[in-house]
Amino acid sequence: MTTTDQTPVASPAYRPSGAKRVQLWLANHFAILSAILVLLYLFLPVAYTFAFSFNDHGKTNIVWQGFTWKHWQDPCRVAGACESLVTSLQVGAISTVVATVLGTLMALAMVRYRFRGKAASNVLIFVPMATPEIVMGAALLTIFVQGFANVGISLGFTTIVFAHIMFCLSFVVVTVKARIQSLDPRIEEAAQDLYASPAQTFWKVTFPLILPGILGAAMLAFSLSFDDFIITNFVSGNESTFPKFVYVASRRGIPAEANVIGFSMFVLAVLLVVGAQVVSSLRASRYKE
């Protein structure tokens, strides 16, 4: 840092020209300006979805034709819209719970134990994330149709849940694993040192500390499941989830009611996330003087 002793001498005399100053300002704010542009780009389709939920459209909802509240007044008016939403929520809830429990157990085993076959388990957890959804969907379709159908499990709600748990599992393991790895092992040793049995150490110390990671994994799993279309399309048979309903409808024109439901889910999710953030920052500041 040889520059420090020279700066005081140089700075008062140096005044860049106007054009140069604009250039400097742009250079300094380039990252933040482009970030704002990218965020606007990310929100553009959401804004479109929102705007066209008020479109008084005819057969197709592509061109703006006039304002109406009617889609918001009864989004369930369109056959299948709300039924598919309920299915999606049910599938999401069940898959999230099962995948989170199984994934957390696996993550604990992967971080806390040494065992034969650990490298193989690592690969088994990783490969589903590196496999295109269409391949997983195709593979599941063949086994469900050619194998599971023989034992009385046909394509439908059950097979959707089976598939969703599978593709959520790896993401849960990776998320929870990162959280466990970042824990200071001395904190658990301290609990044992203070007379906590292994079970007490887990429930009083380890579990509360990895809980944010588990909740994050659960949120990730739910959003993956709720938004999945490609795999679901293969394994759902006659059952319809919300993304499938929208996709099928898109052939004839998506009704604005779908926009209402989609945008409401967006608002709900954002409120949940922001709410969680606010609660945690309130909790953190409560003890401050």
Partner: peptide, 30 residues
């Protein structure tokens, strides 16, 4: 947890999710 021995850990290893009081009360409660 079976020994009448306690440790002050390097970098302290306090329980981050518990208050100071609950940290100190952890041993006696167990």
């Amino acid at each position: 947890y079976e020994r009448p021995v306690n440790t002050v850990f390097q970098s302290y290893a306090l329980f981050p999710h518990l208050t100071i009081r609950d940290n100190v009360a952890f041993g006696p409660k167990r």
